[in-house]
Simulated assay, not measured.
Amino acid sequence: MNTSIQKLSLLSLLIMSCAASADSLSLSSTDIAHGDFMPPAQEFQGFGCTGGNLSPQLSWSGAPEGTEAFAITAYDPDAPTGSGWWHWQLINIPKEVSSLAAGAGDSAKKLAPKGSVQISNDYGVAGFGGACPPEGHGAHRYQFTVHALSKRLDLPENASGALAGYMINAHSLGSSTLEALYKR
């Protein structure tokens, strides 16, 4: 085998092994499932919706080396806003934590890990805001994502969802998404 083919083969193996290690972070839930419709417990209460507004239980494993904190986001790319809809952003989850209880997105319940910070969602509340797509708009996708962060994020007290999203992505070592559906 000539040297250039050997180098190309080694480079391909290196790329595949890096991709495999980057994909080791995984996210699961006992409350919602990838590709399935969420129950009314995860529907917002307000804006004409009457659900439980309960953030789902989430667990993750396989954090990449160098992880210093985690962030959880919930985002609806199908919201008719032109920019989607941030339902939840919880940052600075300690690196020792690997799950959130159902309801951790409710600031009043104080179930979020100590040291973590709830960012104001697009409903204007710091915490989880459930699904509430317009009636007859069809199924919306709700992307729950865990990000392994290279550092804890230092954000202003009233950081926007866009700023939080930017900083999360700028310091993400890897992520895993569970995409659930909802319609009214």
Rank of each mutant, 00 (worst) to 15 (best):
N2M: 07
N2P: 12
I5K: 15
I5D: 14
L8D: 09
L11Y: 11
S12G: 13
L13N: 10
M16P: 00
S17V: 07
S17N: 00
S17Q: 06
A19F: 07
A19E: 08
A22K: 05
T30S: 15
D31H: 13
I32V: 12
D36L: 14
D36W: 09
D36R: 13
M38P: 02
P39V: 06
P40S: 02
P40G: 02
P40A: 07
A41F: 12
F44R: 05
F44A: 13
Q45E: 15
G48A: 06
N53C: 05
S55M: 09
P56I: 00
Q57N: 15
S59R: 10
S59F: 04
P64M: 03
G66M: 03
G66F: 03
T67H: 08
A71G: 04
I72Y: 00
T73S: 14
P77Y: 02
G84T: 12
G84V: 12
Q89T: 11
L90T: 03
I91S: 01
K95P: 01
S98G: 06
L100Q: 07
A102W: 11
A104P: 05
D106K: 14
D106L: 06
A108I: 11
L111Y: 00
L111N: 05
P113G: 12
S120P: 12
A126Q: 13
A126K: 15
F128W: 14
F128E: 01
H137M: 04
Q143A: 14
T145Y: 02
V146L: 09
A148C: 03
A148P: 04
S150A: 14
N158P: 11
S160A: 07
G161H: 07
A162E: 15
L163H: 12
A164H: 08
G165Q: 08
Y166D: 13
Y166M: 13
A170I: 00
G174Q: 03
S176P: 04
Y182G: 04
R184S: 14
